[in-house]
């Protein structure tokens, strides 16, 4: 149970001992990245398995990026954007919402559990929400186990 975080997620049920999930997080610069920064400033502890990639808008996240990430062995991908009606670029997040909904269907057809792809709205003021999202998503990915690309199911 070494990969479970001692201080944030509580009890984890792991499929596999020593599973270190690899989670990629695409954060839009204006809301979610700032939300992640706020979580840091507030010293909100969370599991250390996520890696943030900054994009200007969640709508920049080309479906190809997500598919490539899974191809390269990501166990989970989180796309985080501004809340509806709050997008810095007017309505990019609405497009993201549609794309992710379709992508989840596509992923399932490729044999991935659609739960491995998550979309979340996190504002610049929601450090706690960022933490909560990371904790919960890490739990979900832990539960799902390694991605099929890495030999899981």
């Amino acid at each position: 149970m070494s990969s479970a975080t001692p201080n944030a997620g509580g009890e984890h049920k792991l499929e596999q001992e020593d599973f270190e999930p690899r989670i990629l997080v695409f954060c839009c610069n204006w809301c979610s990245y700032a939300g992640a920064d706020l979580a840091g400033v507030s010293r909100l502890q969370m599991p250390p398995h996520f890696r943030v990639i900054r994009v200007m808008c969640s709508a920049r996240v080309d479906p190809e990026f997500v598919l490539r990430a899974f191809q390269k062995g990501a166990d989970g991908v989180l796309v985080a954007g501004c809340h509806p009606a709050d997008c810095h670029y007017i309505g990019g997040n609405y497009r993201t919402r549609r794309r992710i909904a379709l992508l989840r269907i596509l992923l399932q057809q490729f044999g991935f559990d659609p739960g491995r792809l998550k979309l979340e709205w996190i504002s610049a003021g929601e450090g706690e929400r960022f933490q909560k999202t990371i904790v919960e998503f890490t739990d979900v990915v832990n539960e799902l186990g390694p991605s099929p690309v890495r030999g899981g199911d």
Partner: peptide, 24 residues
């Protein structure tokens, strides 16, 4: 914002300083 880049079905659009290549 890069919305066009993510939308283009031909992969003909990318963003300066946030290119597909850099992000990938």
């Amino acid at each position: 914002c890069g919305c066009c880049g993510a939308t283009c079905p031909e992969g003909a659009i990318t963003m300066t300083h946030y290119t597909d290549q850099q992000l990938l």
